[in-house]
């Protein structure tokens, strides 16, 4: 009895938090999605959302998010693997992760300078003889910067998975005559799948809703669902439409979490 009571007492602030800041914001977003720009109850936002314009936007958001996730995975997996092989692996890991501690905005601004017509990247291209070209405000720079920003988030779960991998499995495979590739494909990859899934989840969902980079790095020429939400909430004041997109994003989020499992970031 006493146990129950004290448990409930402990629960109060936490439960309040769940009700106020987890459940009610979602409910409010759903509620607002049923109001048009003039404040009348309607389904117009949902109708609008399923027009080619927003479908195309959704599709391109997904495409970019997919690209960013795959590219970061391709970079992160070998890196994580190499790090686990080094002597001071935790120190190396820390060094890789330190950039993620720098404010996102600062990194974005650094890239504006680097990618500018007279920036370091173009000087380099000039130097190796390719010649300067337009880098800032292209899809390329957008994906590049996004991948750069997300890589540490991808590395961490994969590193942990590789680190927890019992090496005797690998030795056993080797003893039984498996080639390096077979060992990787049949042993290492399946055993680190959870890490990969976690990493993809951590990258894909935020990549779907990037809004600051699309503006600063892509010069507003890449429009993601996140950009649209920000525009509707802070510029056009069409909270209904913004909420509708948000509802859709939340929906996608739950699907992805369903697919990859609830896991803490970088667990």
């Amino acid at each position: 009895m006493e146990n129950k009571l004290s448990r409930n007492l402990f629960m109060i602030p936490y439960a309040l938090w769940i009700i106020l800041f987890v459940v009610s914001p979602i409910l409010l977003v759903v509620y607002f999605s049923f109001f048009d720009i003039e404040g009348n109850f309607s389904f117009i936002n949902y109708k609008n959302f399923f027009t080619p314009v927003y479908m195309q936007m959704t599709f391109s958001s997904f495409w970019y998010a997919f690209l960013i996730t795959v590219l970061s995975l391709l970079v992160a997996y070998p890196t994580a693997y190499l790090v686990t092989r080094t002597k001071h692996k935790h120190l190396w890991l820390l060094l890789i992760i330190v950039p993620s501690w720098i404010n996102l905005l600062l990194k974005a601004y650094a890239f504006i300078g680097i990618f500018g017509t007279y920036g370091a990247a173009n000087s380099f291209l000039e130097f190796i003889g390719i010649g300067s070209r337009q880098l800032l405000f292209t899809d390329f720079s957008f994906v590049f910067v996004a991948v750069y920003i997300f890589i540490p988030f991808m590395i961490l779960p994969i590193f942990n998975a590789l680190d927890n991998l019992n090496p005797s499995f690998v030795y056993a495979a080797k003893d039984l005559g498996a080639s390096k590739w077979v060992t990787f494909r049949r042993i290492i990859l399946p055993l680190t799948m959870d890490g990969i899934k976690a990493g993809c989840q951590v990258v894909f969902i935020p990549a779907l809703s990037l809004f600051m980079l699309t503006r600063l790095i892509a010069g507003n020429q890449v429009i993601t669902l996140g950009t649209a939400i920000e525009q509707h909430f802070l510029v056009t004041q069409d909270w209904g439409m913004g909420s509708t997109i948000a509802v859709f994003l939340i929906f996608i989020m739950f699907i992805i979490i369903g697919l990859t499992g609830f896991r803490k970031r970088g667990a």
């Binding site: 720009i37 314009v53 195309q56 525009q231 056009t236 069409d238």
Partner: peptide
């Protein structure tokens, strides 16, 4: 109408 303008602008940006 303003919402319509914004919608068109968003389409243009895309």
């Amino acid at each position: 109408n303003l919402a319509h303008y914004n919608e068109l602008f968003l389409q243009f940006k895309m």
